[in-house]
């Protein structure tokens, strides 16, 4: 009985994790520019991979492999944040202006001017 419960809990965690990874992929396809795509990439990566690893930890039970999985989870958490930041920074340093809503042109020009002023592009 206990085994059935832990296995089903593991499957639940795995499916929720895979769902969030899928959300991240849809976000990368649908969102308009680098910065907003990074939102989907970094955030869904962390939770999706984290929940998947959590499911594996529950499935594995008490063993040395759990320590390895925790190490992988910590590495993923830190590296995902850092790579997201690095890509965004590289995009900014190459003067990529963020996508803006399709408002009146005048407003958009003003916003872009302000942006150039702030970042000295």
């Amino acid at each position: 009985m206990f085994e059935v419960m832990t296995k089903s809990l593991a499957v639940l965690f795995l499916s929720v994790g895979v769902f969030f990874l899928w959300v991240g992929v849809v976000g990368i396809i649908r969102l308009p520019d680098v910065y907003s795509r990074l939102h989907a990439a970094t955030k869904c990566d962390i939770l999706g991979a984290g929940l998947t690893l959590m499911g594996l930890i529950i499935y594995e039970g008490f063993s040395f492999n759990v320590l390895k999985l925790i190490a992988v989870a910590l590495l993923l958490l830190s590296s995902s944040l850092v790579t997201g930041h690095a890509v965004a920074r590289a995009a900014m340093r190459t003067d990529l202006i963020p996508w803006q809503e399709n408002r009146e042109d005048r407003l958009r020009v003003e916003k872009e001017k302000l942006f150039r002023e702030i970042f000295k592009v």
């Binding site: 959300v23 649908r30 308009p32 520019d33 910065y35 989907a40 939770l47 963020p98």
Partner: peptide, 22 residues
């Protein structure tokens, strides 16, 4: 982290794509 993910999910699944980046 959970709130961030559900928020991204809601925005991405919405056909109107309700974002206004700044």
């Amino acid at each position: 982290i959970f709130r961030a993910n559900t928020d991204v999910g809601e925005r991405v699944m919405d056909p109107r794509l309700p974002i206004s980046p700044a």
